[in-house]
Amino acid sequence: MVDKKISVIGLGLIGGSIVKALKEQMNITNIAAVDNNTESLNQALEEGYIVKGFSKLDEYIFDSDIIFICTPVSITISYIKELKDNVKDNCIITDTSSTKGRIIDYVNSLDNPPCFIGGHPMTGTEKTGFKSSYAHLFENAYYILSHTKSSADSHMDTLCKIIKGIGAIPLILDAQLHDEITATISHVPHVIASALVNLVKNSDSEDKKMQTLAAGGFKDITRIASSSPQMWENIVLSNSEKIKKTISDFIETLKSFMEYIDTNDSKSIYNFFESAKAYRDSFSDNQKGLIQPLHELVVDVVDKPGIIGDIATLLGQNGINIKNINVSNSREFEQGCLRITLPDSDSVDISYNLLTDKGYKVFKI
């Protein structure tokens, strides 16, 4: 794989993380990129992640062995249109869009399509841009791949090796099934999170009491509402039917719950929460999903001078990079008052052990 010539179109969070992972984890050096953001291109060049950068498609890109298109769905299709008659016959084109059906349908509608495999890394953050990308974004994350009529098993095997090489777990799914799953576990949850935030915004008083108290748990369950509006507009429009179906199912669930309240059906109310808890508790902690987990600890501490400094010093002396540390003033359903945000799960585990060894009562989010 080290000899492959790879191009990445779109140097945002995903595209930037791909070029970093290819270089750092697979030792692939012949990487080019296309992006209309010259700042991102220059940074990738200066840091040695790419050998060439272009603002538009070029003959150099057409000569690639593998091309990753890391752009929204509508833009991805535009790039496929431009690539399809210009790339060499054995070039594998793939994408990273959150929906697969529209793109796969377009490729399959072509009389003589290029070798295309739909792709979707099931990971990400609320941050955007090359500056937010990092090489281990894909580690232990499922990476969905979907066949088209122009992709052979040998092409899929090649791409799977790349996906494994950057630390992800390839999983081959039908495009329509993929879109049904993502509508339920990612797309509609983002709609709901944004709806909850807008509910508070529209219900709040002039003195912003709701906003003041909307911390702790509310802030956590609506964290994904901070994602890019442009990206989510594109996702919703490209998977609209499946999202509408899932929203309808969700509304029926809420209607049933309202009936439990109206009839004072305590048993059904209990079962509603109990079944959700049992199913939620069965989820694996070892895999990444579409919604990035929080890398946070909550520490139960007494409010006294120097306590934050003591904890920060302990972690800093052991090589732990603290991204944020703050006192939580709204602590309903929380088990401590000091929140520490860390860069990754390894830092969480190390910090947890360091703090508990020192006698602190610590809880993982």
Rank of each mutant, 00 (worst) to 15 (best):
Glu82Trp: 00
Leu83Gln: 05
Leu83Trp: 04
Lys84Pro: 00
Lys84Met: 12
Asn86Ile: 03
Lys88Ile: 11
Lys88Ser: 08
Lys88Val: 12
Asp89Tyr: 00
Asn90Phe: 00
Cys91Phe: 00
Cys91Lys: 00
Ile92Tyr: 06
Ile93Cys: 05
Asp95Ser: 11
Asp95Asn: 14
Thr96Ala: 15
Ser98Met: 07
Ser98Thr: 05
Ile103Cys: 04
Ile103Pro: 07
Ile104Met: 02
Ile104Glu: 12
Ile104Pro: 13
Asp105Pro: 05
Tyr106Pro: 09
Val107His: 00
Val107Leu: 02
Asn108Cys: 12
Asn108Thr: 11
Asn108Phe: 02
Ser109Asn: 12
Ser109Asp: 12
Asp111Ser: 14
Asn112Arg: 08
Pro113Met: 04
Pro113Ser: 09
Pro113Thr: 01
Pro113Val: 10
Pro114Glu: 06
Pro114Met: 10
Gly118Gln: 07
Gly118His: 06
Gly119Asn: 11
His120Gly: 11
His120Asn: 14
Pro121Ile: 01
Pro121Met: 00
Met122Lys: 06
Gly124Asn: 08
Thr125Val: 12
Thr125Phe: 02
Thr125Arg: 13
Glu126Leu: 02
Glu126Ala: 06
Glu126Ile: 05
Thr128Val: 13
Gly129Pro: 09
Gly129Trp: 09
Gly129Cys: 09
Phe130Ala: 10
Phe130Gly: 09
Lys131Tyr: 06
Lys131Gly: 03
Ser132Leu: 10
Ser133Phe: 03
Ser133Asp: 05
Tyr134Gly: 05
Ala135Asn: 06
Ala135Lys: 15
His136Ile: 04
His136Val: 03
Leu137Met: 01
Leu137Gly: 07
Glu139Ala: 07
Glu139His: 10
Glu139Phe: 10
Tyr142Trp: 08
Tyr142Phe: 15
Ile144Tyr: 04
Ile144Trp: 01
Ile144Ala: 00
His147Leu: 13
Thr148Lys: 01
Lys149Met: 07
Ser151Arg: 08
Ala152Trp: 00
Ala152Leu: 14
Asp153Ser: 13
Ser154Ile: 15
Ser154Phe: 09
Ser154Cys: 08
Ser154Pro: 09
His155Asn: 13
Met156Gly: 06
Met156Asp: 02
Asp157Met: 09
Asp157Thr: 14
Asp157Glu: 14
Leu159His: 05
Leu159Ser: 12
Leu159Pro: 02
Cys160Leu: 02
Cys160Pro: 00
Lys161Asp: 10
Ile162Arg: 00
Ile162His: 01
Ile162Ser: 06
Ile163Phe: 08
Lys164Tyr: 07
Gly165Phe: 01
Gly165Arg: 04
Ile166Val: 04
Gly167Ala: 01
Ala168Cys: 11
Ala168Leu: 13
Ile169Glu: 09
Ile169Gly: 04
Ile169Trp: 01
Pro170Val: 07
Leu171Thr: 13
Leu171Tyr: 04
Leu171His: 08
Leu171Glu: 13
Ile172His: 03
Ala175Val: 10
Gln176Cys: 05
Leu177Asp: 08
Leu177Val: 15
Leu177Met: 10
His178Tyr: 05
His178Glu: 04
